[in-house]
């Protein structure tokens, strides 16, 4: 890194850890899913507002994960269904997916796990990518564990690596499928704060069965219930995420959400 070439390199590859793309809305229409011949949901419409976090809250087995997988392109949408980006462009290549399990590769170091995306696209990570991965590990508080193997980390640390890996992909839309539900209460709260900070400005769909989690992180909260399942109107809690866990308004809304879940 000496002389003009180093400067040119820095301009071509800005070291910004999160160069968030412009907010992108997503709209799903006519979604349909059958299980054992019975519809889990059919003719379902759902949309994600660009640049905000939408929480989809529902009991286990209601089909919320399936809906998320549909948007992620991991399941075929079925006849008649459309999944469209707000700007009319293709969704492929603009979505990142984070699951309940961290899905870290046990043979790769923490840093190499953050670099899983480029490796799977056949790209050998260059110095700029490695620097960005390091910066993201720094953001999630794991810079000193970059060389460790995943099995040396706790569950919370592993999910933080998964978050860094998701952020490295730098996609406009981030789909999160109960990403914190396997963690203990305190670790979960910390990760919620961390992800709210790092995902700000992106279009996020967070699927969860925890009303408090939805209330802390969601700009918009939808409840998905019934069989075939329907999606209720958006609840928009006041204040910016991550909302404090002791907020009395949150607790009142939690009762409201539990009521909607039970209906």
């Amino acid at each position: 890194m000496d002389g003009p070439s180093g400067v040119a390199d820095a301009i071509a590859n800005p070291p910004a850890p999160c160069a968030a793309a412009a907010p992108l809305a997503v709209r799903v229409t006519g979604a349909r899913l059958c299980f054992d011949g019975r519809p889990v949901f059919e003719n379902l419409d759902f949309s994600l507002e660009g640049g905000v976090t939408t929480c989809l809250l529902g009991p286990s087995g209601v089909g919320k994960s399936s809906l998320l997988r549909l948007v992620a392109g991991l399941e075929p949408p079925g006849p008649g269904a459309t999944i469209a980006a707000g700007d009319g462009g293709p969704l492929a290549g603009r979505i990142a997916w984070m699951a309940q399990r961290d899905l870290l590769l046990p043979w790769a170091s923490v840093l190499d796990n953050v670099l899983t995306g480029p490796r799977l696209r056949g790209v050998t990570p260059d110095a700029a990518m490695r620097r960005r991965a390091h910066d993201l590990l720094d953001e999630v508080g794991l810079a000193d564990r970059a060389g460790a193997r995943p099995d040396a980390l706790s569950g919370g640390m592993r999910q933080r690596v998964a978050l860094a890996r998701t952020l490295f992909e730098d996609r406009a839309v981030v789909l999160m499928d109960e990403p914190f539900s396997a963690l203990d209460a305190l670790t979960r709260l910390r990760l919620q704060d961390l992800s709210a900070r790092l995902l700000a400005g992106r279009t996020v769909l967070l699927v969860t069965h925890d009303p408090l989690e939805a209330l802390r992180l969601g700009h918009r909260i939808h409840v998905m219930t019934g069989r075939p399942a329907g999606i209720g109107p958006a609840l928009e809690p006041p204040g910016a995420p991550p909302r404090p866990v002791g907020d009395p308004a949150l607790l009142a809304l939690q009762a409201e959400l539990l009521g909607r879940l039970a209906s």
Partner: peptide
Amino acid sequence: WLDLARSMDARPWA
């Protein structure tokens, strides 16, 4: 892992 790879637009040989 295969789902993750799909979401990352993995190429077949990689």
